[in-house]
Nucleic acid binder design. Structure first.
Lengths: 337, 337
DNA sequence: TTGTAAGCGTTATCAG
DNA sequence: CTGATAACGCTTACAA
């Protein structure tokens, strides 16, 4: 575990200058003989180039950061799983930041770009504040934001279309004859929460169903909080025949609560979720869910960032990933192998 | 997005030398007046220190790498979730490597330590080869390995005790009156696969049960492969009354197959898994599982690495995390709220 | 207390 | 083709 060899060590060993060593190592035209001596010296010494020194000179770190609230969230996890190989293939390492959806923490990450420890950043803020937008536009490295930002913000932006997504799910429930469709959402001051709330109301209107506030309950985007919210909802609207959940974790909580209450899914109450996380297909009854393309969004973000890293001055781009309804047993009762 | 200010910029602005700027920024004793001028210049310019330059000088990157096969695996995920905050609190960033359990890839990561882009590495190889051990001992930065390595290997090592773990589960099944206990394992040439295979045989002996090879099936550590293996097992040993699964993903596959075959869990067949992943508590029937302390192992690894980073020359340490049986409905039928 | 200068390991320029 | 040398941005003796 001694100090590693540097090009200076190699230069001495090979009896050449450090400049020649550098040239050989970078494949620049060099006399055959010199090449051999340098390479064999490097080989014998087990030389590995120091990436820090290289970065200082080249101003590139070959690292990219991904910042999300919590890697434990299946949606962010799905994104990481897509982002990682794309970056790796392009020669970048992935630096992970968990921000706990804390605004100050997120701003720190953005400011931290000034430290130049990464070449770019993919960030997925749960809430988007004025401070975010300012920090994003002042950022010292390219940034891609996953999650809608106001139009006109000068940043690459990947969006889901939860509006259409909710619509797909409600159309589906409606087509199955459900008319008392409850809605369990997360906090309304979040990007997804507000979007899905509006979408639910719109979809009802489009279907000619009345908006009944007894059918709406707010909890949080986690299983336990979702379960609690569903309990409250069931108490207030015992006659509901379907529940639209703003994400799959909530929906899993719903399945649990319904089972404990002796309500059959989907015979008595159909359940639909959103995000199509892995677990949705793994539980019983398997969960009907609207995929918002987590994986696609992750990949798109990585590709957009790579593109910008190669091409700094192009106009910011907005990519919207379309939703897709995945029908499973929790609404139809049919096994999907 | 112009080039950021450096200490030189600040020095000019404040009318002092770069040395003074550096001193002020590092809190070294400096005249009050100079401090003020430097700080205000830094403030006005929005100065952020360049971590690459700092690293080159200090020989520390404040980055640590974590390398595992696939972040999608719930066990590794649980580890990351523990490792990340520990490192963050200590001022380190986390660099993530997915190796797909590819030996060459893992060796690359180890060799890559020579690039000095991280101060240390936590690695969890699925298989441990001679090449691994050589590369680990030649590594140019501190390494912590999660997963048993041969005694005497000069590396910090975090171990699970799956031997005791399997024993706990089999004792439990036996105490419930089960006598035909099947075993579904992953590949035997992996660290966990071989350990659990041996443990199963030992536990049977301890319980006075015969080893029946019709009760043993090998698949892989994933849900789908596990399900397939369980199908084969059921065909070969239709009279079994319990299934011990080498991990929870396999066990989830088992629940699915049993349900499709109309076997009630646990009335007809009790099922136990291993790792106690989040999903184990979330499915129905909830899965009895042996926790091998994924979170604890992650935390221990991070702490061991931090300790070594502060204290390079101590002897390698081995930490074994004890297993813990978590009893749920898949063996007892009782709801656990 | 402060400034000058050396050095961290590379890359790249510019003479020879 | 090759070697000396100057950056890259920062920390740290060493002098003043």
């Amino acid at each position: 575990m001694s100090d590693g060899p540097t090009i200076t060590t190699i230069a001495e060993r090979a009896g050449v200058s450090i400049a020649s060593v550098s040239r050989v190592l970078n494949g620049l035209p060099t006399r055959e003989n010199t090449v051999r001596r340098v390479l064999s010296a490097a080989e014998e010494l087990g030389y590995v180039p120091n990436s820090v020194a290289r970065s200082l000179k080249s101003r590139r770190t070959n690292q990219v950061a991904f910042a999300m609230a919590d890697i434990g969230n299946p949606v962010y996890l799905a994104m990481v799983r897509e982002i990682q190989p794309v970056l790796k293939a392009a020669g970048y390492r992935l630096v992970l930041h968990s921000t706990d959806a804390d605004v100050a923490d997120e701003i720190d990450v953005l400011r931290g770009l000034g430290e130049r420890y990464v070449d770019g950043l993919i960030m997925i803020p749960l809430r988007v504040s004025e401070a975010h937008l300012k920090a994003v536009e002042a950022a010292r490295a390219p940034v891609v934001i996953i999650g809608s930002v106001p139009d006109g913000t000068r940043v690459d932006n990947i969006r889901a279309d939860s509006r259409t997504g909710v619509r797909l799910a409600l159309d589906h429930l409606h087509s199955l004859g459900r008319r008392r469709i409850g809605f369990v959402n997360g906090p309304l001051d979040t990007v997804p929460g507000s979007a899905r709330s509006i979408a639910y109301a719109e979809a009802l209107t489009a279907l000619g169903l009345p908006y009944d506030e007894n059918l709406v309950e707010i909890g949080d985007f986690y299983r336990a909080e979702g379960a609690a919210a569903v309990s409250r909802l069931l108490a207030r609207a015992p006659d509901l025949d379907a529940i639209m959940c703003a994400n799959d974790l909530i929906a899993l909580g719903a399945l649990e609560v319904l089972r404990r209450n002796g309500r059959r899914v989907p015979e008595d109450v159909a359940v639909a979720g959103m995000d199509d996380i892995d677990m949705a297909a793994a539980v019983w009854p398997a969960l009907t869910s609207v995929s918002l393309g987590s994986a696609e969004r992750g990949r798109a973000a990585a590709e957009l960032l790579l593109d910008r890293l190669g091409n700094g001055e192009r106009e910011p781009r907005v990519v919207t990933v379309p939703p897709r309804l995945v029908v499973r047993a929790s609404t139809t009762g049919e096994e999907t192998p």
